Deep mutational scan, measured.
Amino acid sequence: MSGNGNAAATAEENSPKMRVIRVGTRKSQLARIQTDSVVATLKASYPGLQFEIIAMSTTGDKILDTALSKIGEKSLFTKELEHALEKNEVDLVVHSLKDLPTVLPPGFTIGAICKRENPHDAVVFHPKFVGKTLETLPEKSVVGTSSLRRAAQLQRKFPHLEFRSIRGNLNTRLRKLDEQQEFSAIILATAGLQRMGWHNRVGQILHPEECMYAVGQGALGVEVRAKDQDILDLVGVLHDPETLLRCIAERAFLRHLEGGCSVPVAVHTAMKDGQLYLTGGVWSLDGSDSIQETMQATIHVPAQHEDGPEDDPQLVGITARNIPRGPQLAAQNLGISLANLLLSKGAKNILDVARQLNDAH
């Protein structure tokens, strides 16, 4: 009898209710805020589980004197976190989706994509230029951005401005803007500013005609071990179906173009009346040469937790077992079709030249 009692006690200790789920994140304040929001949602869904947040620095956090596009290494903000995932030191990792490459290392998958916040870019102005827009900034004003995508589009749109690289986390960039006289304004992701509670610093939100956004911008991705079915089931509740389908289309477009950090590629997606609209573009580094096109596809946005595919093969690095396969494939095909259209119009040449120029500098 006593033996059975011990077995029952052991089973209770090993039951999922007692389990601590370890969540990996970057150390920056924004990353911690984003991770806290994901953990809060998981806690609400699984009140019996405990969650421990483990923060670590990544290569991208450490190399702050070089433009991201020049470092010449993929997975700048993800490699150390993936290493911890691989060694079973954490069970899942919360990322900004735009930091996750469209091809993940073997053994990993994006197990959830959370509801997207505003994906557009924002302009934050130096205190002396508050009330201005990019259009009304004085001639030769210097605007800071760490992104080739932003610089290429904005140089084309605002030729009277000069664009220079600015690195560091959000706090560091804002301090550089406010305390030094080098920059009249800087460009940042609206979602990051909003998550930090800095709505009052948003001086201008850039519309798609001015600057399309990065693939996955404004959404959070939760990376897990691809074979860890328990954790895949656990994080599945975080999937937002519309965000998922938009981001599958965007990531398929980028992957098929073979774009990345070192080339200016941008997108804009919208879901309306059962249609998914995808606009994508590529630019030369100075913005003088560009190709942009829009395509659409009829896609039914499923309700969360309709029964999805059981075999769960990944699409552009994403596993969404609780979302039907048909809409996911339709979104992926839309991204591939748009990429093929741009490639047929000469996108590869623009991107190759951009890559060579970026590598040469």
Score class of each variant (00 low, 15 high):
105 P>M: 10
279 T>P: 03
340 N>Q: 15
221 G>E: 00
113 I>M: 02
266 A>R: 04
358 N>I: 15
233 D>C: 11
208 P>R: 13
86 E>W: 04
75 S>T: 15
57 S>G: 09
127 P>I: 14
56 M>W: 08
58 T>N: 10
271 M>N: 07
253 F>L: 10
278 L>C: 12
63 I>Y: 06
239 H>D: 14
72 G>Y: 11
261 C>I: 01
57 S>H: 04
295 M>V: 14
101 P>M: 06
110 I>A: 02
273 D>R: 14
355 R>Q: 14
223 E>M: 00
337 S>G: 12
179 E>V: 13
106 P>R: 12
297 A>C: 15
139 E>T: 08
330 A>R: 15
355 R>S: 15
105 P>E: 06
65 D>G: 09
201 R>D: 12
274 G>Y: 00
117 E>P: 00
149 R>I: 03
343 L>E: 07
228 D>W: 01
313 P>G: 10
105 P>H: 10
360 A>V: 15
115 K>S: 14
216 G>S: 12
290 S>P: 05
58 T>Y: 00
215 V>M: 10
55 A>S: 12
110 I>C: 09
123 V>L: 11
294 T>C: 02
122 A>M: 08
198 W>F: 11
339 A>C: 02
355 R>P: 14
50 Q>T: 10
129 F>I: 08
140 K>T: 09
206 L>A: 03
193 L>K: 00
281 G>S: 15
318 I>T: 07
63 I>W: 09
159 P>V: 14
59 T>G: 07
277 Y>C: 08
328 Q>W: 14
234 L>K: 12
100 L>P: 05
189 A>Y: 01
43 K>R: 10
286 D>A: 07
277 Y>T: 06
166 I>V: 06
282 V>K: 04
238 L>E: 04
279 T>D: 05
56 M>N: 06
214 A>L: 03
252 A>R: 05
122 A>Q: 06
250 E>L: 02
86 E>R: 13
349 N>M: 12
281 G>W: 10
326 G>W: 10
191 A>D: 02
135 E>M: 14
256 H>C: 12
245 L>D: 00
158 F>T: 13
96 S>V: 00
299 I>T: 14
143 V>G: 04
55 A>F: 15
262 S>G: 15
41 T>C: 10
154 L>Y: 06
88 N>K: 14
174 L>G: 05
360 A>R: 06
209 E>R: 09
237 V>Q: 04
247 C>H: 01
138 P>Q: 14
60 G>P: 03
203 G>P: 01
291 I>N: 09
340 N>H: 02
128 K>D: 09
77 F>T: 02
128 K>G: 05
246 R>P: 05
141 S>P: 04
178 D>C: 14
335 G>Y: 00
179 E>P: 06
274 G>I: 01
107 G>W: 15
258 E>R: 02
66 T>M: 11
322 N>S: 07
184 S>I: 09
302 P>M: 13
60 G>A: 04
218 G>E: 04
204 Q>N: 01
93 V>T: 06
358 N>K: 15
222 V>K: 02
62 K>M: 10
174 L>E: 04
128 K>H: 12
329 L>V: 15
259 G>S: 11
70 K>T: 07
47 P>E: 00
155 Q>E: 09
109 T>Y: 04
104 L>H: 10
134 L>G: 04
297 A>N: 00
136 T>R: 11
175 R>S: 10
211 C>R: 00
92 L>V: 06
178 D>R: 04
261 C>R: 04
291 I>E: 13
196 M>R: 05
213 Y>A: 01
113 I>L: 13
140 K>A: 12
94 V>R: 00
58 T>R: 02
275 Q>E: 05
247 C>Q: 00
220 L>M: 13
327 P>S: 05
123 V>S: 08
